[in-house]
Simulated scan of single mutants.
Amino acid sequence: MDKLKKYAFPLIIALISSAIFYLSPSLSQTVRPHSPLTQHFVEARVVEIESQQLKPDPQVPSIMTGRQIFSAEILQGEEQGKQVRVTNPLSRQHNVYVKAGDHFIMLVRLKNGEPYYWAYNHKRSPAIYAMLALFLLLLIGFGKQQGLNSIVSLYFTAALIIGVLIPAIFAGWNPILVTIVLIAIKIVVNYILVCGYNTKSLCAMFGTLLGVVAAGLCSQLFGELAHLSGIYLDKGEDVIYLTTAHPIQVRWLMFTAIMISALGAVMDVAISIASCYHELRQTDATLTPKQLRHASMNVGRDIMGTMTNTLILAIAGGSLTTMMMVWGFEMPVIQFINTPLVAMAMVHALAGSIGIVLTIPLTAWLASWLFSSNR
């Protein structure tokens, strides 16, 4: 019975997540953009290289450029088993260099009424699935019950974002309201899975929600002061052309993006402060709420430096090639800091860091209020 209670909540959340993934495609079909192109993707295998004219790229010698012509066997779909002839141009941007026996992803498109076959991409999924399996095994091996709960939490997060948030945005709903509601649900479920339902987790829940909302508001406010909007996000302009019956509110996507990206770091900070307050209170019952609050905030100051670095370095890592371009062209500060891409990255990094910093005192104050003896 105890084991059943122990696994009941994770099982319920896993079932809810699966239901979202199962029902979302049919429920959101009316708001999904429809491509005018008649195309599909299948797995294929290179049977024989018929001819190739290749040479190493002069700037990147590890990349072969030129053209290949080969025969390939389709391994999926209605044309499974059919052999087709593929012309495969290779460049720096599109470089699917294949050898006999290689598996790849083939694009099949109707062109002037005739099927056109193109080597779209390497088959990368086995490496990704192997890495995912390693990650899950490590989580369960080291974390055991907590590791399993973490997997369920990640699964639930994916269900909320893919199955609820994205369809809701395409349906024309306000991204700010939808994001706050979904983030609040995610926070509650995550802390119950990881910490159980108690005063410590309740304190961390409120602290996290306040912190990520503060980050989102800062991102939106200072982004608009800097004349930025969701259109400057990666693929932000392309999203506009995915037309549906309901216009996408691109303006508010900055708020959504920063809340999602800052959530993990803010959750770490909030639970650290709440746990610190709880442990100090358990260790020494003579400490007053004010002393516990100050001690927790002192710990938070140590955490603050590493967590803000974590967030900023993650964004910097994603913008590495942009920084290389800035350095390579010797751009003056007045030029690069006013570039939309750079300004957007800086607003995101700073807004997330502000959310982390504010989470520390907010969670400490919430802890002193929620843990007080008369609550």
Rank of each mutant, 00 (worst) to 15 (best):
H103G: 01
A262R: 00
L136K: 01
M106W: 08
Y241L: 05
L4F: 05
G143C: 09
L370H: 07
H34D: 11
V181G: 01
A44I: 06
I271G: 01
S272M: 04
Q52F: 03
V181Q: 00
L154D: 08
A316G: 05
F135K: 02
Y232A: 09
T87I: 15
K6H: 03
F135G: 05
P58M: 12
I151T: 00
K144H: 13
L202T: 06
L242V: 02
V357M: 15
G81E: 07
A351T: 04
S150H: 01
V188P: 06
D284H: 09
Q76R: 15
L311E: 01
G141A: 13
S18L: 15
V299P: 13
I63F: 00
L90D: 03
L54M: 10
V269E: 06
P167S: 11
L37P: 03
G196M: 07
K3G: 03
L209R: 02
G352A: 05
S18R: 05
V178Q: 04
Q52G: 01
E48M: 04
I334G: 14
V189F: 05
F142M: 12
E43R: 14
G147R: 09
L263C: 07
Y241W: 07
V269N: 08
L138V: 15
P25L: 01
K200W: 05
Y129W: 06
R92W: 00
D238C: 03
Q59K: 02
M259E: 00
V152R: 00
Y277L: 03
F21W: 11
T359Y: 05
L90Q: 02
G147V: 04
L263H: 08
V266S: 03
L228P: 12
Y7T: 06
N374K: 15
H348E: 15
L139N: 12
V347G: 07
F329E: 07
T30M: 04
V84Y: 15
D102I: 10
F142S: 10
F255P: 03
P247M: 02
G216N: 08
P115S: 11
G230V: 07
W327I: 09
S71F: 02
S35T: 05
H34K: 15
Q29Y: 12
V189N: 02
M331Q: 03
Y191T: 08
Y191K: 09
V239M: 08
K3A: 05
A8H: 01
H94G: 04
L221K: 04
